[in-house]
Design a protein around this nucleic acid. Structure first.
Lengths: 258, 258
DNA sequence: TAAGATTTGTTCGTATGTATC
DNA sequence: GGATACATACGAACAAATCTT
């Protein structure tokens, strides 16, 4: 028995706890899984779904919005348009997860407690596994802060660029979960840097040491020295952590935009 | 100038790249942030929003669905009903994040690479900080697997209960990010255990050692011995990791339900 | 218990916008 | 530029849930 069209699971009868759009969204989601559909694959059009579910256009559209918000479907107008299976992007996952932490108290130090644990592990796993192009990519990011910041504004810009370095590094990793956790924290720190006033005063000595850390790291990665890459990253994170300790324990106060 | 009602940012003029519901949802989200609304706080009713935004009922409702899917609003019918700011629950955040990994290749070992790093740290941070009630809570969960499993089915049930132990431990931590990451991984492993057939064969020796680990852990936590708690958990994770290594590198193949 | 009030939930018909050919 | 195919948006009416009296 192969089901070839989305339908509600017959299990729940008339129990109308959930609204129709929610039930339709779940049915479509289940159907995508059962059919093994891949990103970009076509979903039935509005008219189709209206007929299949026997519900109105408004209800079907609300269901699609539920799926759209989760990043699971995308819709296009015009001929050849319609609904398609969508791959949840990293940015969207960041945003959705950031919402979870919005009402919770997250301190900078909470983030660094994790960075200290995770980033060295990522660095070690990358040793000897980066292509010349990838290493150049990282060096290119470092060019954005190859001189000491002149003032608070530039300091902030450099901090964000430095976080991009870590996000890029994460993208190169082959453990998708580890990579996501690291890039998520980099994203949060970047947002905090923009919206609050972290890094008010430039500190040339810290800048010099931080940059040297990253240069050493690239060297260790290039030579395939995992242990050294881990150690350098650990030092880098500990330094950053103690630096941030002096900052106020700022909490997240912002939804990240859609 | 205090804005007292949701409205679109005047910045973007007639640029209609995003659909109206999306724009309305963003406007409401921004408004919630600006007003500093808290979970449970009232949002304007449908009729209100229709008037304020000058859009149709359908458009407004689709916008609310976008927010509902993210867990940011909840709606109730009837007198006193309406839309309210909702706190994103842990379960919903789990599900939304699991969607991100659905099309990516996640191996069991990826998860254990992280558990080995994170769980010992959590254990150490909890030493001497758990109340008698919390310790009893953990012991209560352990009661669900106080005897060796007789068959594959019971083995699986015990594995899930054991994952509940770790999730509960995470809930007691005061680093919300660390706690979430750990509980998320426990949730994934639990789902995999249910929907795939992990843990086919009972292994009494492993069961005995795993249980002894947890007993030692509780003792260390009770006595406030952070270093020992960390070491015990590290052993526990390493053992579990090598056990799971023998399982096939199963990837996630399932959306988590709404 | 029953009736009424309030608010979201759902439907249907129609019209508009948008991208492709 | 016109025809086509699709989603997008509107408005009025009705249904359902839930609180109050």
């Amino acid at each position: 028995m192969t089901t070839t069209e989305p339908q509600e699971t017959p299990g729940r009868l008339t129990r109308t706890r959930k609204s129709r759009p929610v039930r339709v969204a779940e049915a479509i989601k289940d159907w995508v899984v059962e059919q093994g559909l891949q990103p970009g694959d076509r979903l039935p059009g509005e008219a189709d779904l209206i007929a299949r579910f026997g519900m109105s256009k408004g209800t079907i559209r609300e269901a699609m919005r539920l799926l759209q918000a989760q990043g699971l479907v995308e819709t296009k107008t015009g001929p050849g348009g319609g609904s398609f299976v969508g791959e949840v992007t990293k940015d969207r996952a960041h945003a959705l997860l950031a919402n979870y932490f919005y009402f919770r108290n997250i301190t900078i130090d909470d983030i660094y407690e994790l960075r200290v644990l995770l980033e060295p592990e990522l660095a070690a796993s990358l040793a000897g596994r980066l292509s010349a192009a990838q290493l150049d990519d990282l060096r290119g990011i470092m060019a954005d802060y190859d001189r000491a910041a002149a003032g608070p504004e530039e300091e902030r810009a450099q901090h964000i660029a430095s976080l991009r370095f870590h996000a890029k590094l994460a993208a190169f990793g082959d453990n998708a979960i580890l990579s996501f956790f690291i890039s998520f924290m980099a994203q949060i720190l970047s947002d905090l840097t923009v919206y609050n006033h972290l890094y008010a005063e430039p500190n040339h000595e810290l800048w010099r040491r931080g940059r040297q850390h990253q240069l050493d790291l690239l060297d260790a990665l290039d030579r395939g020295e995992a242990a050294r890459a881990r150690a350098v990253m650990a030092s880098h994170m500990e330094m950053a952590r103690s630096l941030m300790r002096e900052q106020e324990a700022v909490v997240m106060k912002r939804f990240i935009a859609e």
